[in-house]
Amino acid sequence: MNIFRLAGDVSHLVAIIILLLKIWRSKSCAGISGKSQVLFALVFSTRYLDLFTVFVSVYNVVMKVVFLALSYATVYLIYMRFRNSYDSENDTFRVEFLLVPVIGLSFLENYAFTPLEILWTFSIFLEAVAIMPQLFMITKTGEAESITTHYLFFLGLYRALYIANWVWRYHMEGFFDQIAVVSGVVQTIFYCDFFYLYVTRVLRGKGKMSLP
């Protein structure tokens, strides 16, 4: 464990909690892409199956359980508890355009052709594109509430910190996970455009982030 990865995991946890609290306190999921949240729950479900096969550390187990619980709680709030505020007209990204290539690629490119490895690889590739429905929804509505942008900021920060973690581990441990790194870099690139808008619009105190 290094400070970059720890900060990345904390940033990821903060993002998930920000979103969950926003929905719970405002009793509404307007402007939130339920599809992205379902994809994230799927990412955790397919990646954390090793909870039942290997013990890494208490931290590892606790964080995986927390991420699973919070992501399912978020999906529950969106599609069940506050479903009447779910903005389905604007949450129209075709997730099959993400799932089909990701499934295909995880069968082609993996470390071993075993169920756990293919599911892990699937979760890595899926996480890279899971935010697309949310970013698409923001471009469609032309704006995002500031809390939603904070959620996206911390998600992007988590990815940027993981890249720093991989640079650190490469130099300190000679560690290099090609699938995770390539997919992680692609995922981080998707946030760059958002980061620019976040800094230029949200942090300038405009409150909402409205796209040009």
Binding site: D50, S57, M63, W120, D177
Partner: peptide, 10 residues
């Protein structure tokens, strides 16, 4: 390779 190495990242 990575398969038998411990996957310790979240």
């Amino acid at each position: 390779n990575r398969q038998d190495e411990l996957k310790d990242e979240l």
